[in-house]
Computed example of a mutant assay.
Amino acid sequence: MASLGVAALQLAAGSTGNLELVEREVRAVAKRFPWLDLVVIGELAIHGASVDLAEPAGGETEQRLAALAVETGLWLVPGSLYERRGDAIFNTTPVFNPSGEVVARYDKMFPFLPYEAGVEPGRDYVVFDIPGAGRVGIAICYDMWFPEMIRTLAGMGAEVILLPTMTNTIDRDVELSIARANAAINQCYFVDVNLAGDLGVGRSAVYGPGGDVICETGAGREIIALDLDLDQVSRMRHRGWQGLGQVLKSFRDSDVRFPLHETVGARRQVMQAMGPLEMPEKERKEPTEDAADEGADRKPRLTIID
């Protein structure tokens, strides 16, 4: 049976300076659950959301994470780090194997613009194989709002998709519905791990290849340790969930064209009327001439109560 032991750590992190916390938590979960293969934590968990703390690839933080992977014997997906390359900064997830080697490096394709300003988008999809288990895909937070991206990872054979997340806003409910839908329509495990504490509202979740709810957490520190049955992914993709929709095969066999996706220029032309991607401003409504006159004629009223 093909299985993957995964721990998703929803850490109660401070706004920055969380490397020692990550090291303690990974060591603790490795000791408590010796059957684990892989540990994943939330987006930007270690240094927080400041691009001023960006490091080059292979910097001090990565060196300590590599040593942690060797020490624990785990595959390590340490959320993400802001990584500096020349004059550019990327939101990057390095993937460490148990030998401490970086076997993959994923750059977030959809920085959370206009808020995540100054971060370059990635260009390459990333999947990696864990020997004896299966194939894992990586996306980061806002990436999952773009179904074309998650479908591509599934098309590349990903049986489990890991989504390090840092969400501290009111749209977490919507994100969970999107995460669950992504699991169902791509017939894969979907592991969406958020942060708690100063950086996130928690509520991490794991969904199965039928869109089934495996785990949904609360708002504080929580550890999700699961033994994922990857044979179930193959079965779902072959037979459908409960013998129902065989979604990926239907997509494969269809001759439907998607003109919007055929070129970058096509979608830009169709969606141009939406205007530029920029920070929303406070809306100010200019009073009409009639409204201004009406306001001028209005006199205060005095109500006397005996």
Rank of each mutant, 00 (worst) to 15 (best):
P56L: 12
A45G: 00
A139V: 14
E116Q: 11
G58S: 10
V160T: 01
M144K: 06
D124E: 15
E175N: 13
R123G: 12
T61S: 15
A179G: 11
H47E: 15
R180Y: 05
D107V: 04
I150A: 06
E62Q: 11
G157I: 05
D87E: 15
V77S: 09
A154K: 04
G137F: 07
A181K: 11
G137H: 03
T165P: 06
L76M: 08
W75Q: 02
E159F: 00
A158K: 07
T167G: 01
A67M: 13
E101C: 00
G58V: 12
A184W: 06
G79P: 01
L44H: 03
T165N: 08
I161D: 07
P164A: 05
F128S: 04
I89S: 01
I185E: 03
T92W: 00
A184M: 11
R123F: 11
A45M: 08
A66G: 08
S50M: 08
L44F: 07
D171W: 07
G48C: 07
G100R: 10
M144T: 01
M149T: 15
G134F: 08
F112E: 09
N186V: 13
C141F: 05
G157T: 02
I89A: 02
A117I: 13
N186D: 15
S177A: 13
Y142E: 02
R135E: 11
A57D: 10
V126W: 07
L53F: 11
G122K: 03
P147I: 11
A67G: 11
F146E: 12
D171R: 00
R64E: 00
A57F: 10
E120Y: 09
N91F: 05
T152F: 10
P98E: 07
P131S: 13
W145S: 11
P164D: 01
L65D: 05
A69F: 09
P98A: 05
L81V: 02
R84F: 11
S177H: 13
G48N: 07
A139L: 14
D124A: 14
L113N: 00
N97Y: 00
I140D: 08
L162A: 02
I150E: 00
D107G: 08
R84Q: 15
L162S: 03
P94D: 02
V160F: 03
L163H: 04
G42C: 12
D52L: 14
A181Y: 04
P111K: 03
T169I: 13
Y125I: 12
E148A: 15
R172M: 07
G132S: 10
A139P: 06
R64M: 09
M109R: 02
E62H: 06
A54V: 03
A154G: 01
V174I: 15
P98G: 06
E159C: 04
N186Y: 11
H47M: 14
P164E: 05
I185Y: 04
I89H: 09
R123M: 13
F128P: 04
V70R: 14
T165Y: 00
E101W: 02
R135C: 10
F110L: 14
P131N: 12
